[in-house]
């Protein structure tokens, strides 16, 4: 669906290249996470992929066609939801959706159904100026699906949302993946990336340091250990055990039998730990 080869980009007045030889490929039905700290080149890459920045070097093929060769039909195929909501404040949610919908020609979604998906159906006829930040984010998010696009780009889709709504947004993304949509997710939220993405790319200073599936990364970079927390002499204690041969580890089994166990966890690395390890940089 998306094929990027040796992508380079430099802003006219910048001294250094913002993007240095990016290479990646995204398949149909995949959720691909683009992770990195602010200023790493995430937004620039997304702007190139959605056809806003055109004077790049290298090749960017979307749906088999180089992006500069696409005309505005391209936008029938892709949906975009930017980080900051872009909405008409004087219009209601329904008017906002219907207005944008009028530009598309193919099969379209029912505006009211979209509002229902993000729990805004009761506020469909309320002006967006009366919306809270989270409500605007949800409306902005769901608008990206209005023309039933094949590829959808999201920039920090859960930022500013309460946990319940964030969970709902993540569920919608997963549901769309199962319908065969390809999703490009830009974020610096590692938990979101971990929960949703089939693969993630770590980008720092305009370079991709690593591309892999979160699950594989966590296992590879994790310690092969189990940490047990238990109560002993009225105090919290913890102890690590090697995973290898754990079933024959007498000390471990004795502990399980004799002490009051509070938690048992395998020690996979978090995506955040791996990011810091591989890039030497912190997020944010």
């Amino acid at each position: 669906m998306i094929e990027v080869k040796d992508l380079m980009f430099k802003y006219p007045k910048a001294k250094e290249k913002t993007l240095k030889e990016l290479n990646f490929k995204i398949d149909k039905g995949e959720i691909f996470g683009f992770l990195g700290p602010s200023g790493a080149g995430k937004s620039t890459t997304q702007k190139i992929l959605i056809g806003i920045l055109k004077d790049y070097l290298g090749s960017v093929k979307i749906l088999g066609k180089e992006i500069i060769n696409w005309n505005t039909d391209f936008y029938e195929k892709i949906g975009v939801s930017f980080e900051l909501p872009n909405l008409y404040h004087k219009l209601t949610a329904l008017e906002n959706l219907d207005f944008v919908k009028s530009f598309y020609s193919g099969k379209k979604e029912d505006s009211k159904k979209l509002l229902e998906m993000v729990g805004l159906e009761k506020n469909a006829d309320v002006k967006v100026s009366k919306y809270s930040k989270g409500m605007k984010m949800r409306l902005n998010f769901v608008r990206a699906f209005i023309h039933n696009p094949d590829i959808v780009f999201f920039d920090e889709p859960t930022s500013g949302l309460d946990p319940l709504n964030a969970k709902n947004i993540k569920n919608i993304i997963m549901e769309k993946k199962h319908q065969g949509k390809t999703i490009f997710l830009t974020t610096h939220n590692m938990t979101v990336a971990d929960e949703l993405c089939d693969r993630v790319a770590f980008i720092v200073d305009g370079e991709i340091k690593l591309i892999d599936s979160p699950k594989k990364l966590k296992i590879e970079h994790g310690k092969r250990n189990i940490k047990v927390e238990y109560i002993d002499k009225n105090k919290f204690q913890e102890k690590d055990f090697a995973l290898k041969g754990i079933g024959y580890n007498d000390e471990y089994i004795k502990l399980l039998r004799e002490k009051e166990i509070k938690t048992i966890h395998t020690q996979e690395a978090t995506l955040e730990d791996i990011f810091v390890q591989t890039t030497g940089r912190k997020l944010l």
């Binding site: 959605i50 056809g51 806003i52 505005t72 039909d73 936008y75 029938e76 892709i78 975009v80 930017f82 872009n86 944008v100 530009f103 598309y104 020609s105």
Partner: peptide
Amino acid sequence: LMLIVTPL
């Protein structure tokens, strides 16, 4: 920004 990523 939103309008230029539609078929407009």
